[in-house]
Amino acid sequence: MIVTHKKDPGIVKKYASDARKIIIVGCSECAAVCRTGGSEQVKEMAELFSDREVLATISIESPCDKRISARDFRRIAEELSGADALIALTCGTGAQAIAEVTGKRVVAALDTDFAGMVERLGRFYERCSHCGECILNETAMLCPVTLCPKGVRNGPCEGIKGTRCEVYEDRDCVWHTIYRRLEDRGELDRFTAYHEPVDWSKCHSPREVIWERP
């Protein structure tokens, strides 16, 4: 799930300062779970813009999916044609998808943080940094690229303090935890399996996946 947080309302209004007619766009998937783009937040945003003409509010299931966005915007085609700006309570990908689908000016109302694991509402944890060369099978399903602040792929580093991390002393070093898990599983030989540096030539932004047609 993509974790987002709200931008300062003043900043959102600043970027929409010359828009008189607006549409508020929420996301009923990730941003709804984060309580940054659900129906409640769409309502709040409409109130924030009560000094303008809010032509429509809409919650899209996955605004990052252009097919779904295009389908849902067709339902409010008339309002869309008259809008000066859309206020996107979505992640950055969603905001850009909306802009591409509608051709309208879009104001991003959220900041995008990371792809997170949801433990429960309000508890979101980053567990993968999308390095493109996954080593989880050798690290007992703990990602050192993400859980180690230095992203050390062959750890621990020299900063480890007992079992604790150099950077966050209230947390165990992930390499300590990896070691313990591998030990419990009788797989300690994996601990020193050497992990090459990531080949970033494969990870240059923007990354794309394009399926070949059979």
Binding site: N154, G155, P156, E158, G159, I160, G162, C173, W175, H176, I178, Y179, R180, E183, L188, F191, T192
Partner: peptide, 10 residues
């Protein structure tokens, strides 16, 4: 650093 387990192995 001085240590056992993961530190010594590394």
């Amino acid at each position: 650093v001085t240590g056992e387990g993961p530190v010594a192995r590394r």
